[in-house]
Design a protein around this nucleic acid. Sequence first.
DNA 1: GCCCTTGGTTCGAAGAGCAAACTAACCAGC
DNA 2: GCTGGTTAGTTTGCTCTTCGAACCAAGGGC
Lengths: 373, 373
Amino acid sequence: MLTDGHASVLRLINQFGPLSRTELVRQLGISKASMSALASDLIDRGVLAEGEMVYGAGRPSVRLELSANSAFFIGVSLATVPFTLTLTDLRGGVLSTAELTQGATPEAIVEEIAAAIPGLFDGHPQALDRLAGIGLAVPGVVDAATGTCVRSTLLDWRDVPIGDLVAAATGLPAYVENDANALALGQHLFGSLRGCDQGTMIAVGDGIGCGHIINGELHRGARGGAGEIAHATVDPSGLPCQCGKRGCLDTLASVRSIAAAARAAGLDCGLAALDAAANRGERAAIDILHGAGAALGLAIAQIVQSLDPERMVIGMTDGPVTGLFARVVRQTVEANVMPDDHRRLDLTITRLENQAWAIGAASIAAGRGFFRV
Amino acid sequence: MLTDGHASVLRLINQFGPLSRTELVRQLGISKASMSALASDLIDRGVLAEGEMVYGAGRPSVRLELSANSAFFIGVSLATVPFTLTLTDLRGGVLSTAELTQGATPEAIVEEIAAAIPGLFDGHPQALDRLAGIGLAVPGVVDAATGTCVRSTLLDWRDVPIGDLVAAATGLPAYVENDANALALGQHLFGSLRGCDQGTMIAVGDGIGCGHIINGELHRGARGGAGEIAHATVDPSGLPCQCGKRGCLDTLASVRSIAAAARAAGLDCGLAALDAAANRGERAAIDILHGAGAALGLAIAQIVQSLDPERMVIGMTDGPVTGLFARVVRQTVEANVMPDDHRRLDLTITRLENQAWAIGAASIAAGRGFFRV
DNA sequence: GCCCTTGGTTCGAAGAGCAAACTAACCAGC
DNA sequence: GCTGGTTAGTTTGCTCTTCGAACCAAGGGC
């Protein structure tokens, strides 16, 4: 098994790209001797490989890089429609993907997952015997320690030991995480939060999800409920939400609620069409996008004030990432965080592909097995 | 010096009270051999002592307890008026306190601190040669790693290396922390957040402060700005705030702003008087307390949704902790967190003595030197 | 008084980490 | 092309931590 020392080397190389032993020594504050042993050990296991040589004064240094082909992971997203599977390597590269016909019961879903796995290896036979684990992203509250989904409204689950079920059906170590958390971890390891130890990922799609990376680790909260900003109250006198409250962020800024507002105003309900209408100066479209963007921006500003993240990434599954909505989000954030701080917050608004959820799910397995995140 | 192993033993005993070696072995997952060595080492150093014996089947076990007199700490609060000093022991007990005449410059303040220290030891000579450090609670943004106050509006400071100054003047290891963070750590180690690894402390006084304990550690954020909920926007169209924005929590729920609202309505501005007036049914008083409580409750609900803490403590420097304000806070929190979760959040509203800030400051020194928090 | 149970210590082995000495590989300057 | 300077990485021997297993300690119950 990998020790903590091994894992910290892998984390660093994953963050910064190939590094020489000496650079690792400086970063980790360990001795050259220990580093030498760790490196040869990781090379022997095939996890690291010697790559580019860097010439300067003195003996050239050898960059150590992650061998993408040393380990593979399967990610299962139950957060997307349809459910998706991916096969990824140690560097987060996607080898293949599959989609599931959406089963109704946990047992049916597990069966479908097991049935879909062999197909992932078509053309990638080398991945089969280096498959290290399977990660699941589940929409709902999850007990990551036991691999149980405590509650999922979307799936209509309650206390489903999905991790054990998948492990039993596939014979693989199975890891379970909340969908937004999986996404955040995926971005932390392989995406736009890479190298950021204090970061927040917000996914704006049909619903709104949020995961926090704190001190380089996923923050799950006392009972796995951290990041549930979709049901943070933004406007106490707002529209009723399916959660029972009023004016939740979800009723104001999710793609679903924006579309509903557009439909009610007699507009085309796609985000891109709405943005185009706003660009043409249509008042109703502008109002809708403005309201939604301001609500999200306010919620984000509150997170910034409370957590002081280094970077924040908003991933949008729909709509232009430079449109009115995104502009209003940015402006609202800047207007609502303490003047001295906002200049230093790195706020990125980007497109979120469906695949990102499954990559996030796979990254959980990679994180537990290799990077210790 | 203490190793991590030593510190985790001390943390556990501080959390749960006296524990036997075997109980510690179970909790820490280390071997009996290691535990035996750690315990005798800590006893030799005088930090632990054998206490009560517990009889059951087999050989009775010996509880190990913290020797309160093995280490002492000075806490300096620059967050209170006047500035206060305390001398505390390893168990957070207060031996003596002092107040400072509020100097104007950092140098003057440091001089006063150094001058006030000898008086703390009157009647406690044993503490002098076991003085382990001095902690400072500073209102403002702090770089805890370097002991620098980056910015403090209240003190009118910018980049003041207060830690170095105090260390030089006193010859003691000096540790600096934001005031709300110090308070939170103090409560985590010795107060109402004891034993809670996911907790939030909110101080409602003239201003509003907030500190988060995440994974048993203080969460400082990317640049020491975490917990700044005083300037989280609650009502975008609210009153202007001295920070430049509008409708900050500070303008709605701080004792200062409640008093201002009361004054404007021609009411007695003390919180207790206001509460009494509300109890008599005076509309204006009810409105003021309701508005303030709802604002704080909303901000708290957002923290709960985002961080999912296990416990949350609101410390009030003024007013009754069971009055209308407190009731509205509770109700608003319960109404604005996801239905399933609020039942499990442990929300405590308690009185916050002035001394708590200085104890918090001292706990920083204790945390760095002994408990590794 | 003798077993049984549980608490705690001692001992030898294994392993992780280190400093310091060593080898390796290149450049620059003569 | 030789040599000294410089940086990269390995080897060696030591320390320190941690562990399992055997052992001693100190009760209770019969």
